[in-house]
Amino acid sequence: MAYELNEDQQDCLQELINVAMGQASDQLARYLDTFVFLTVPSIDLVSGKGLSDSLETTEESMAMVSQGFFGYEGIRGEALLVYKHEDSDRIGDLLGYEPDELSVEEQLIDISSILTTTFLNVFATQIENQMSYSAPKLISEMQGKLSEHLKQLSFDWDMALKVNINYQVTDYSFNCEMVLLIPEAAIENIKTVIDRILEEY
């Protein structure tokens, strides 16, 4: 079965994400009281192996937080937030917590949940949907390459739609990457939604 999005579908999804990014960035800026920059997303179709390879090019020593999302019409997937170690020190500050109020692990989980749910809530509104979430989970905070972490995850899919968005908070020199993965079973569903939106135009 072909999972590829055609050109119209790809453009439409890109546009939906762009709009969601704009609104999410605005909401985050108000909540965090600082500017949050989201870079233009990349949308690809990846295999399980391709995913580890594509993430391997990034730095060593990372933490990763995973959070599942699910909405109506079979829209579901998993958001991975990937952090470099030097960035994890600044999260508490960014979130407005006192240093001894919470652990680094908790900060990672908190910021991940905020970034993921803010973006996906706005995105869901765009496609007239509503998202629910699983509790975010810290997958690994060990030193080492992310690809090794990824190998430990059991991938129950061959292909996935991958949306990469980079978050930057320049005032806090904070950076992180959000990787949304929509497994193959849900790709058809998102295509159906996109086709409906395209028809409405």
Partner: peptide
Amino acid sequence: LGTPTYCSWEQ
């Protein structure tokens, strides 16, 4: 933000 937030026993 109108978003959910979580607190796990692990932390």
